[in-house]
Design a protein around this nucleic acid. Structure first.
Length: 269
DNA sequence: ACCCAGGAAATTC
DNA sequence: GAATTTCATGGG
């Protein structure tokens, strides 16, 4: 059990159930069980502490990084709140969201699966992907399969996932990542447009999936993914603003607005 | 039967 | 080239 004390701005429900990740499930007692970096743990908060059950003490820095505990969200929220009064309201409403530092390839695959899909079904497909092709863990859960593993598979092999037209996109992504044709590490440091173009070499990766991969898989917090929710939110709540107006922390603003909009759909009539 | 779901490719005009 | 259609699958 790893304990992090005095953690501000962290609400596990908001962070793990806001559509940035798809491998955490809430338990009856309110804790969240999930797998990241090949390790299965259960996370819960008590007062201002974060408790990671089932984690090795040697993985303390891994989980500190995963939950992005070294980033000062209070300061960022104050900065964003100056940009627009509605953003200030959304940030206050969703102040427990942190941008996880997920694994790039897993993030890429899950957002390929996300296209024209809904969150419960995305979770189902991702779960079957892990059960069929990931490594089993002692507690019965599975790791997310590597690109090296998936690149050996065909669309027919992926049939049990019931991923539909997205199966061939997964095969293409796995092949290009494992061969090095697409360099995910380059995407961490390259100029933003270059990183986006690198990901868009993959069939099935457009602007939105690339932006989500960069934001959630490489912590490029300047990314501002625009989906149907954000399009509506921008039109009705921020008609005078464009994605680039949200600045270097646009991705965090985007999550505040996305969560606020989904929790309050009546705003859009 | 119909619509929608954290889009993108394929086709059409 | 920009606008429309299609793409599997499942739930409401």
């Amino acid at each position: 059990m790893i304990i992090f004390e005095h953690i501000a701005d962290l609400d596990l429900s908001q962070t793990l159930d806001c559509g940035q990740c798809f491998r955490w499930t809430e338990q009856p007692d309110g804790a969240f069980s999930g797998v990241a970096f090949g390790k299965s743990v259960t996370a819960r908060t008590e007062n201002d502490s974060l408790l990671i059950d089932g984690a090795d003490e040697s993985d303390r820095e891994l989980w500190r990084s995963y939950f992005d505990l070294d980033t000062d969200y209070t300061r960022i929220r104050a900065e964003l709140s100056c940009l627009h009064p509605v953003l200030k309201e959304a940030a206050s409403y969703a102040s427990g969201i942190r941008i996880l530092r997920q694994e790039p390839f897993e993030t890429l695959c899950t957002f390929i699966i996300s296209q024209n899909n809904n969150i419960p079904r995305i979770k189902g497909i991702v779960g079957r992907l892990c059960e069929n092709f990931g490594e089993p863990l002692p507690d019965g859960s599975f790791t997310f399969p590597s690109a090296k593993t998936l690149c050996k598979l065909t669309v027919e092999d992926l049939a049990p996932l019931r991923a539909g037209f997205r199966a061939r996109y997964l095969v293409d992504a796995s092949r290009k990542v494992s061969s090095g044709e697409v360099d995910l590490e380059l995407c961490r440091s390259a100029p933003y447009q270059d990183a986006r173009a690198e990901l868009m070499k993959i069939t099935g990766v457009g602007v939105k999936v690339a932006d989500c991969t960069l934001l959630f898989g490489m912590h490029r917090v300047e990314a501002f993914p625009v989906d149907v929710w954000m399009k509506r939110a921008l039109e009705t709540l921020f008609p005078e603003m464009t994605p680039s107006d949200f600045g270097e922390y646009g991705g965090i603003a985007q999550q505040y607005i996305f969560h606020f909009s989904r929790m309050n759909p009546e705003i859009f009539g």
